[in-house]
Computed example of a mutant assay.
Amino acid sequence: MKPYLSIIIPAWNEASTIPNTLQHLLNQADLIWGTEMRFEIIVVDDGSVDNTYDVAWPWADKLVKHDRRRGKGAAMQSGVAKARGDLLLFLDADLQATAGEALVLIEPLLRREADMAIAKLPLPGAKAGFGLVKGLARRGIHRLSGYKTEAPLSGQRAVRADRLRELGGFARGFGVEVALTIDAVRHGLRIVELDVPITHRETGRDWHGYMHRGRQFAAVGLTLLTRWKERKQVWFSSDRSSI
């Protein structure tokens, strides 16, 4: 039976970027696979106040709309609930002309060499921040799982659907990718990271950029704290059971 891929794209106020993203994604998928693979595109509009939903529908196979903004993790979960594929590919909505490059993430899964593949993106063209969020995420993932990652915040990742369901639900907010990597390692998923020439909107060094980085730093910190508490509870339960 042909592999079935579900491409899940969470989106919030991405009306200016998502049509281009979806168009390039479809064109590249048809060029690479033709009739060799079945795939569907699922867009989850996470309570946008622009017309993201309207401009996405000509290109998407399935559309989900939240009545209010619930966060990226909730949008990813809604997409998984609608997915039929045995392989899942999560992509950001603002990749535009580079969206099709992410399809390479499926290859290690098809070869059964990995359960999850994460995209390592090129360095940004300009300094967008001080690297504090990425550094915190990288160190936290290593401390809590033993896995050394070069792409702790990457939202572009492919995963086998059956292995993803072993992990339970997604974390909330900006910490969703960090939690997903920690949970995957803890459950024994084989992870690979691939260099992929993807570009998306960069966060600048203006006030909006600093606020975004601040929220992201706080969310990643909270995610790491939550996963640390969960690990302590497991250790405590194990110690008590051995008494």
Rank of each mutant, 00 (worst) to 15 (best):
V44E: 06
I41D: 03
K127H: 00
P122K: 05
D30F: 10
L132Y: 10
S6L: 00
L153V: 11
S145R: 04
W235P: 04
I8L: 00
W57C: 06
T199Q: 09
Y53Q: 08
G146Q: 01
E150A: 06
Q96S: 05
R205F: 09
L189A: 02
G34L: 03
V185K: 06
E36V: 09
A102R: 10
G169N: 13
R172E: 13
G131D: 09
K82G: 02
L105K: 13
Q23T: 14
R112T: 15
G73A: 05
G140Y: 07
E107N: 13
R201M: 08
N27P: 02
E230D: 15
T52K: 02
T21S: 09
L144V: 07
R112A: 14
W228T: 13
P152Y: 04
R186F: 01
A56D: 06
I32H: 13
L110N: 11
K127N: 00
G71W: 02
S145M: 01
W57I: 12
T21N: 02
F236D: 15
T181D: 02
V104P: 04
Q233E: 15
G204N: 14
I7P: 00
S237Y: 10
F174H: 12
W235Y: 14
R68N: 07
G221R: 13
R70W: 04
L164W: 15
Q96A: 05
Q156F: 06
S48C: 05
P10V: 03
H212D: 07
W228R: 15
K2Q: 04
I106S: 06
T226E: 14
L224F: 12
F217I: 05
V43S: 01
W33Q: 05
G175C: 02
R84Q: 09
S241K: 15
W235H: 15
H187N: 15
H24C: 07
T21K: 01
H24A: 11
G209R: 10
A56C: 07
Q77R: 10
E107W: 08
A75Q: 08
A83V: 07
H187L: 03
G209C: 11
I41C: 03
T199N: 07
L89I: 12
F90E: 00
G188E: 04
D206S: 07
F174L: 05
L132T: 11
L222R: 14
L194G: 03
I41E: 01
Y4Q: 00
A11Y: 00
P124T: 09
A93N: 01
R143M: 09
P122N: 08
R70N: 12
A74L: 07
S48Q: 02
F236R: 15
L109M: 13
K229W: 10
D195T: 01
A56Y: 04
L87C: 04
P122G: 05
P152L: 05
L136F: 06
A158W: 13
A126M: 11
A179H: 08
G135P: 06
L180C: 02
R190Y: 02
I8P: 00
L91S: 01
V43H: 02
L132P: 03
Q156L: 07
L136V: 11
W59Y: 15
L153G: 10
V104R: 05
